[in-house]
Simulated scan of single mutants.
Amino acid sequence: MALADILQAAAAAIALIGAFPWRLLLATVIFLVVAEGLMFIPRAGFVLKLCVASLLAVQLLAMFRVAALGEPPPLAILLDASYLPPASMLVLWLCALVPFALGLAVLAATGQGTGVRYFFGNILRDKPPSPRAFLLFKAVMHVAAAVFTFVAPGIVLKGYIGWNALEQGLVAALLYWQAPLAVLLLSVAFDAFATWLPKLLPARAAGIVVLVLLLFFVLFLFAFTYTLSAGAFGI
């Protein structure tokens, strides 16, 4: 996959969003509200967030598939996550939790024991890791998650189920490694920007700007992942 293919996928992602912007934007809002809201559950919040988000991500990609066919994607597709085969759910959870575990392991290895406990405590009460440690944690997660870039799209685009989805997704990531690398670089760059912005703006203003940008970034990242995957799987 050449640079021209990646740029073409980015342009196709923007066009795909432009076809049904409000519907896809609302779906992204629902995704973020549900996923981020789960973090407020004490002790299990982050694990629940990752597990639920991994299932909803498949459905969001399914909405982009409908949009790519020229049809308005119904929001009800998000509810179809509960109908995924149990084996596929297990694989999606694995793909979400392995990067999380690796990120925690790196935090622990760098002496950030307090930071590790934050993810299993109460985010309203416990102190999070330092911005630099949090950035490292996210970077490790992004690197590990890049390996699984094509697993969820394989379920949507090719109908793969369970371990076959994992196997085919890993093969696609190996063959078309440039695509996961592009997604990885975008994700790391956004996290670095979100960490740097509060140094320029007041905390409240920076928080609002990051929140708005996060919404559009996640929307684009889903569309970009879809168009990259369609190219990788020959759709």
Results as ranks from 00 to 15, higher is better:
Phe120Leu: 06
Thr28Gly: 08
Ala182Ser: 13
Ala205Val: 15
Gly154Trp: 01
Pro153Cys: 02
Gly231Gln: 14
Leu214Gly: 13
Ala182Arg: 10
Ser130Val: 06
Leu26Glu: 04
Ile41Tyr: 07
Gly154Ile: 01
Asn122Gln: 07
Tyr226Gln: 04
Ala4Leu: 10
Phe100Ile: 00
Ala9Tyr: 00
Gly159Phe: 04
Tyr118Arg: 03
Phe64Glu: 03
Ile235His: 05
Leu107Tyr: 06
Leu60His: 04
Ile208Leu: 14
Pro85His: 04
Val209Ala: 14
Asp191Lys: 09
Asn122Pro: 06
Ser54Met: 05
Val47Thr: 13
Val91Asn: 06
Pro74Ala: 08
Met89Trp: 13
Val66Trp: 03
Ala230Pro: 04
Ser82Gln: 11
Leu135Lys: 07
His142Val: 14
Gly103Asn: 03
Leu211Asn: 12
Leu24Ser: 10
Phe217His: 12
Leu184Pro: 04
Phe224Pro: 09
Leu107Glu: 07
Val171Ile: 15
Ser130Glu: 13
Leu107Met: 15
Met39Pro: 00
Leu92Gln: 02
Ala223Thr: 08
Phe120Ala: 08
Leu61Ser: 02
Gly234Asp: 02
Met141Trp: 09
Arg125Asp: 11
Pro73Asn: 09
Leu107Ser: 07
Lys138Ile: 07
Ala101Gln: 00
Trp177Thr: 00
Pro128Glu: 08
Ile235Ser: 08
Glu167Phe: 10
Thr195Val: 12
Ala108Met: 10
Val147Pro: 04
Leu166Thr: 09
Phe40His: 12
Leu200Ile: 05
Gln178Phe: 01
Phe217Gln: 07
Met1Val: 11
Pro198Ser: 09
Phe134Trp: 11
Val210Gly: 05
Lys138Cys: 08
Ala144Thr: 09
Pro153Arg: 00
Arg43Ala: 12
Glu36Lys: 12
His142Gln: 12
Leu24Ala: 09
Tyr83Gln: 14
Trp163Leu: 15
Gly113Ala: 09
Ala12Leu: 10
Ala203Gly: 03
Phe64Gly: 02
Thr195Arg: 13
Ala165Asp: 03
Ala53Lys: 09
Glu36Thr: 07
Ala192His: 04
Gly169Thr: 03
Val29Thr: 12
Phe119Asn: 09
Leu228Asn: 01
Ala57Pro: 02
Gly115Lys: 02
Arg43His: 10
Thr28Ala: 10
Thr28Lys: 07
Cys51Trp: 05
Ala205Arg: 12
Pro74Lys: 09
Trp93Arg: 01
Ala2Tyr: 06
Tyr226Thr: 00
Phe217Arg: 12
Phe134Arg: 12
Phe46Ala: 11
Ser229Glu: 00
Leu136Cys: 07
Ala179Asp: 06
Thr110Trp: 08
Ala182Leu: 08
Ala146Lys: 09
Ala12His: 06
Leu97Lys: 06
Leu213Val: 10
Leu25Lys: 03
Phe64Ile: 07
Thr225Phe: 05
Pro86Gln: 10
Ala203Ser: 12
Ala87Ser: 15
Pro72Val: 02
Thr149Gly: 02
Val98Asn: 00
Thr149Ile: 07
Ile208Asn: 05
Ile235Ala: 11
Leu170Cys: 01
Ala57Arg: 11
Phe216Val: 04
Trp22Arg: 11
Val58Trp: 08
Ala189Trp: 00
Ile41Met: 11
Ala62Pro: 03
Leu175Glu: 13
Arg132His: 06
Ala101Val: 03
Ile161Val: 15
Ala179Gln: 11
Phe64Cys: 03
Glu167Gln: 13
Val188Asp: 08
Leu175Ala: 11
Tyr176Gly: 00
